[in-house]
Computed example of a mutant assay.
Amino acid sequence: MAATRAPRLTTKGQATRRRIVEGAAEEIRERGIAGTTLDDIRARTATSKSQIFHYFPGGKEELLLAVAAREAERVLEDQEPHLSNLDTWSAWQSWRDAVVARYERQGINCPLGMLITELGRATPAAQALTSQLIGQWQAALRTGIQRLQDTGEVDPQLDADRTAAALVAAVQGGVTILMSTGRLNHLEAALDTSLTFLRTAAPNVG
């Protein structure tokens, strides 16, 4: 993906850029990438062609990357406020329920997955975006595990980062099967089994 120099934006410009990204995201959710054109996005966001290229000099490819970044943010936002407050077993259960509910709403179509595929999974930009999402997600889960360790709920010898990585992998594996089959039960099983493992790491659990 060719590098482009993003324009320095005023507050109004930032708002316009956000509106374009949000409008493009809505179009892609409704129509898919193949069915979404710049004209569709212009109509939805009440912007001109010159405005699109002002905020996204690289054209549709740069806009798709911005939409993918926004969709990645949504993955984490949809897990809040639970993801930032994983300090009790009840909070972990609420997080689990929020994750399942998010992907139940999403169904078999994953806008972020489609965007990353369109951009090319092997491209540096797509890889960097995916790595950032996974890194932030894993870090939040690691912090939650460490909070349980600090309160004596989980064995302090447990590798918090490795366990957090396994939790992310469990979710992503369940989501992949959901996208292929339309069934949530594998995602639920992966999360429930992972949380059972975490609970069994509690020092005083009989």
Results as ranks from 00 to 15, higher is better:
residue 173 G to V: 11
residue 178 L to R: 14
residue 44 R to I: 10
residue 50 S to I: 05
residue 1 M to F: 11
residue 12 K to L: 09
residue 135 G to H: 09
residue 112 L to Q: 01
residue 82 H to F: 12
residue 129 L to M: 05
residue 90 S to R: 11
residue 102 R to T: 15
residue 91 A to F: 08
residue 34 A to G: 08
residue 16 T to G: 08
residue 33 I to M: 08
residue 58 G to I: 03
residue 103 Y to S: 01
residue 133 L to A: 09
residue 49 K to C: 04
residue 165 A to N: 06
residue 153 E to S: 12
residue 166 A to L: 14
residue 2 A to G: 06
residue 18 R to I: 02
residue 111 P to G: 06
residue 205 V to I: 15
residue 106 Q to F: 05
residue 11 T to D: 15
residue 97 D to W: 01
residue 2 A to N: 15
residue 133 L to W: 05
residue 165 A to E: 14
residue 37 T to S: 14
residue 146 Q to G: 00
residue 171 V to D: 07
residue 62 E to H: 08
residue 117 T to N: 03
residue 109 N to M: 10
residue 106 Q to E: 15
residue 95 W to Y: 14
residue 54 H to V: 05
residue 101 A to G: 05
residue 147 R to C: 05
residue 62 E to V: 02
residue 32 G to A: 13
residue 70 R to H: 11
residue 80 E to G: 09
residue 45 T to W: 01
residue 127 Q to R: 12
residue 174 G to I: 12
residue 118 E to T: 12
residue 170 A to K: 04
residue 182 G to A: 10
residue 51 Q to S: 15
residue 56 F to D: 00
residue 183 R to M: 11
residue 150 D to H: 03
residue 170 A to P: 10
residue 127 Q to V: 06
residue 197 F to M: 13
residue 87 D to K: 03
residue 200 T to K: 13
residue 178 L to P: 08
residue 74 R to A: 12
residue 17 R to I: 00
residue 11 T to S: 04
residue 172 Q to T: 13
residue 175 V to I: 15
residue 78 D to H: 14
residue 153 E to A: 14
residue 136 Q to P: 02
residue 41 I to N: 02
residue 68 A to Q: 02
residue 74 R to P: 01
residue 131 S to C: 03
residue 78 D to R: 15
residue 85 N to M: 02
residue 159 D to Q: 01
residue 22 E to T: 14
residue 150 D to G: 08
residue 156 P to D: 05
residue 157 Q to E: 13
residue 205 V to E: 11
residue 51 Q to T: 11
residue 168 V to T: 06
residue 39 D to W: 03
residue 116 I to F: 02
residue 138 Q to D: 11
residue 199 R to C: 04
residue 29 R to C: 07
residue 151 T to M: 01
residue 158 L to A: 11
residue 197 F to G: 15
residue 19 R to L: 02
residue 72 A to C: 01
residue 177 I to S: 14
residue 153 E to F: 07
residue 141 L to K: 03
residue 124 P to D: 11
residue 86 L to M: 09
residue 111 P to K: 06
residue 117 T to L: 09
residue 204 N to E: 11
residue 64 L to E: 03
residue 37 T to Y: 04
residue 84 S to E: 09
residue 120 G to L: 03
residue 87 D to V: 04
residue 140 A to T: 07
residue 74 R to Q: 13
residue 112 L to P: 09
